[in-house]
Each structure stands twice: as structure tokens, then as C-alpha cells.
């Protein structure tokens, strides 16, 4: 099957190192348009996750049968049929949410993350690894979108999980900030999505830089175990 390191590598790539939203910057159209609140963002990311896992699995299974020259149209056809199924499922189970998400569910077909993972990973790996890659790439997208959606509705209106009753009937959104909070409308508008995504990317880069500096310092300390001038840090 696969060893532990390969699994770790796929998971870490999807969740952090090659995060679709923060590093690859793929599929920004749904990312920015749908992330007005957590519920919309999470549901769209879930739909994308399911499509990615299934399309990666399907294409990895068929990878030896698909002629190389026409692989892109074949990939698109497979992804499109899966998205159609998801589209119908959403319409049946979450009809109100389906109306709000609207065109963005069918648009998963054209989402560059799906095609990018199919082309770059699934067509070259075994079905098990490909499915895992689809799931973890989807999870990376999920947490990014959820965080962006939460930030946008929190700053924009002071609530979290608005529209939750469309997913679990009867649930109430959480009001985090007091009623008198005037609401920073900019965060809920498209420019707010760009500004907050920029802040998230900056935070991600900052954390990665810190990590790199730490590992460098550690390897330097290993390389020079007993430099005579250096005193132990006070």
C-alpha cells in the first residue's frame, strides 16, 4: 500500500505546504465569491472535496486507459459527470442553500484545483494515493474557506454561522459581538475577501518563514556543536 512518510507528505501538502487557497491560489473565484459566511464556504468546500476525492480516484483507476493526447477532455467529462451528481444531491437535500450557492456548484467542473490535481497527481499515482490527495487538498481548501468565511461574517456583521438553519433546521447563528456593533460592511463585500485573503496569505508566509528560520538555526547548531567563541545563551 503506502508507507507512513508518503501518507504524511500527502496530508501535509494538502493541508499546509501546497494549500490550494493560500499557496497555489487556485480556484479563487468560488473562494472569494462564496466565502461571505462560514456555512456557504464550508458547504461549497465540502462539495469540492467530494468531487476531488472521487474524480482523483476515478482517473487514477482509468489512468492507463486514457489516451494521453485527449486526456484533458476525458478528465473534464469525468469531473463534469461527478459534479452533476453532486449538484443533484445538493438540490435534493439542501435546496435553500443550493439556491444561494447557485452557479458555483456547477462551476466546480471548471475549478482549476480539481483539474490541477487530476492532471498533476491522479494521472500519475495509484488510486489509493490519489484519493487521499483529493481528500487532503479538499480539506486544505475547507479550512481556508471556513476561516475566511468566519472572519468575513464576524467582522462584517458580528455573527458566526449565519444561515446554519439551511443545513441543520432549527439551529441558530451565534452572535459573537454585541448588538450595537455597527458592522464593517467592507469585509462582507468582495474587496473584503481580497484584503482578508491577503492577510491570511501573509500570516501563512510569516509562519513558514519562522519555521524555516528555526530549522536552519537547529541544523546550524548541529553542524557547529562546540564553537569555542560561542557561549551558551543566557
Amino acid at each position: 500500500m503506502m508507507n507512513k512518510d508518503a501518507f504524511k507528505n500527502i496530508a501535509w501538502n494538502g493541508l499546509w505546504r501546497q494549500n490550494t487557497g493560500l499557496v497555489q491560489l487556485l480556484g479563487l473565484c468560488p473562494l472569494l465569491a462564496i466565502s461571505v459566511n462560514t456555512v456557504n464556504a464550508v458547504m461549497l468546500a465540502l462539495a469540492t472535496l467530494i468531487v476531488m476525492a472521487m474524480s482523483n480516484a476515478a482517473i487514477a483507476l482509468l489512468r492507463r486507459l486514457i489516451p494521453h493526447e485527449i486526456r484533458i477532455p476525458v478528465f473534464i467529462l469525468i469531473v463534469a459527470s461527478l459534479v452533476t451528481a453532486i449538484d443533484l444531491l445538493f438540490n435534493a437535500w439542501f435546496h435553500e442553500l443550493y439556491i444561494i450557492l447557485g452557479i458555483f456548484i456547477p462551476l466546480i467542473v471548471t475549478n482549476c484545483i480539481v483539474l490541477a490535481r487530476v492532471e498533476a497527481f491522479a494521472s500519475k499515482h495509484n488510486p489509493f494515493a490519489a484519493t487521499l490527495d483529493g481528500i487532503f487538498m479538499g480539506l486544505g481548501l475547507l479550512w481556508t474557506l471556513a476561516l475566511l468565511g468566519a472572519l468575513r461574517e464576524l467582522i462584517g456583521g458580528g455573527v458566526l454561522l449565519s444561515g446554519i438553519d439551511m443545513v441543520t433546521p432549527g439551529a441558530e447563528p451565534l452572535r459573537i459581538l454585541p448588538e450595537t456593533y455597527p458592522g464593517f460592511l467592507l469585509a462582507a463585500l468582495p474587496p473584503g475577501a481580497f484584503i482578508l485573503l491577503g492577510c491570511l496569505i501573509a500570516a501563512k508566509n510569516w509562519l513558514s518563514e519562522n519555521e524555516k528560520r528555526k530549522t536552519q538555526a537547529r541544523s546550524a547548531a548541529v553542524a557547529l556543536p562546540a564553537a569555542p567563541e560561542e557561549k551558551p545563551a543566557a
Binding site: 455597527p182 464593517f184 460592511l185 467592507l186 469585509a187 463585500l189 474587496p191
Partner: peptide
């Protein structure tokens, strides 16, 4: 610009 988009009424 930021404030007139965020708080048009005020």
C-alpha cells in the same frame, strides 16, 4: 473609500 463602502450611512 474604505469607510464610505463599509459605513455608507454614517
Amino acid at each position: 473609500a474604505a469607510c464610505i463602502i463599509a459605513f455608507p450611512a454614517l
